[in-house]
Each structure stands twice: as structure tokens, then as C-alpha cells.
């Protein structure tokens, strides 16, 4: 008499995430652009949101203190378009700095000018990544 076959292991399955469409992912991304961490705060990652806010803000403020440049597009300098896009990624930090700064073009003769530019660009790009991350979390693509 043959023994009954051992039950086969259930097939591996990944629980399906229901993608959430609608305003919430876009709202999370928009809030993330406005201020670093706001999008993550909306989707419930409160502790990480505060840390993101501190890190990105610190990077931006250091860039300003190092007398870096808040880029704007310049005719004949196509790379400034990319740089402008990057810096505008910082949202309100960038907008308020442009309004309040007496020297948004930076001090090119400063020893730390290049570093300041790097920090400002990096802060903006970090925040763009945070926008994408907040969108993915709100859309259910990332747990």
C-alpha cells in the first residue's frame, strides 16, 4: 500500500500590495518638496521624518554658510539648468534663502565656495529622493 504523498510546500507568494492611487501619494510628494520630512510625516514615518528634516536642512544651511551659490539658469551655461533643478529640489528652504539672502550667487572667491555649492546641490537632490520615497510609501509600493 502506498503511503499518502507528503503535502507539498505552498508556493512562495508575495502578498499583493494594493496600490493606492489618488491624492495621497501626490500629496506626500508635494509635502516632501515643501519641507524635508513632511511627506514622511504624512505617511506615518514620524521619527524618520524628523531625522530627514534635520539632515537635509543642515546640509542646506551648511551650504549657505560656506557661501555656496543658489543656482539660476544662465544663458550659454546649460549645466546651470541642471544645477537650478537640483537646488529647487529643496523647496521652501531654497525659496526662503533666495528671498532672505543678500548674496544668493555665493562668494566665488571664498575658500569654501565649491563646498557650499556641493552642499546646496546635495540638499536639493536629497529632498528629491525623499519626494520619490514618500510617494512610493503612500502608494503602497514600499512597506
Amino acid at each position: 500500500m502506498s503511503e499518502p504523498a507528503a503535502p507539498s510546500a505552498p508556493p512562495l507568494s508575495v502578498p499583493a500590495r494594493s496600490p493606492r492611487r489618488g491624492a495621497a501619494p501626490l500629496l506626500a510628494a508635494a509635502l516632501a518638496w515643501i519641507f524635508p520630512g513632511l511627506g514622511h510625516f504624512l505617511v506615518g514615518r514620524r521619527g524618520t521624518a524628523v531625522l530627514y528634516a534635520i539632515i537635509v536642512s543642515a546640509t542646506f544651511v551648511l551650504g549657505l554658510s560656506f557661501e555656496g551659490r543658489l543656482y539660476s539658469p544662465e544663458p550659454g551655461q546649460p549645466l546651470t539648468i541642471l544645477a537650478t533643478f537640483a537646488v529647487y529640489g529643496a523647496g521652501l528652504l531654497n525659496l526662503s534663502a533666495r528671498l532672505l539672502s543678500s548674496n544668493p550667487g555665493g562668494t566665488i572667491l571664498s575658500v569654501t565656495y565649491e563646498y557650499g555649492c556641493a552642499f546646496l546641490l546635495t540638499a536639493g537632490l536629497m529632498n528629491l529622493l525623499l519626494m520619490l520615497d514618500a510617494y512610493d510609501i503612500a502608494a503602497g509600493r514600499k512597506s
Binding site: L51, Y52, I55, L62, M126
Partner: peptide
């Protein structure tokens, strides 16, 4: 330091 902390969180 800032880059490393950021990406380790992300």
C-alpha cells in the same frame, strides 16, 4: 557624514 546618515536611513 551627512550623505551616509541620509542613505542609511533611506
Amino acid at each position: 557624514l551627512l550623505i551616509s546618515v541620509f542613505f542609511s536611513l533611506l
